[in-house]
Amino acid sequence: MEIVSTVFMIIGGLFYLLGGLGILRMPDTFDRIQAGTKATTLGAFSLLIGITFAHPDWWLKILLIIIFIVLANPIGSSVLAKAAYLSFEKPSNLVTDELEDVFGGDTND
């Protein structure tokens, strides 16, 4: 049990490190959003599972944290991606951009 918990925690730490590296090294904003979200979600997942193996009677609260992260993290990055799309310059190497016509006149006033 101890070993399983340790392995999960180290994997979680590695994925957190990957999230930080992805944020640092990816070339444009949307790539950074993708790398950050995916790596930190799996990192939190595996770290929390490791903690559950070490303390089995905490599993209810940890389950709540996992549900919250899996729901909230992608929603946050989607909202952020839309904001970045609407506000800033697009990356220069886009192949297709089928959203141009959709969000063109999306104002409320």
Binding site: L18, L21, G22, R25, M26, P27, D28, F30, D31, Q34, A35, K38, A39, Y85, P91, N93, L94, V95, T96, D97, E98, L99
Partner: peptide
């Protein structure tokens, strides 16, 4: 993600 972080020159063609 790990593969693309560690070797940045994988060809990409991003788009919406």
């Amino acid at each position: 993600v790990a593969r693309r972080v560690l070797s940045i020159d994988i060809p990409v063609n991003p788009g919406f």
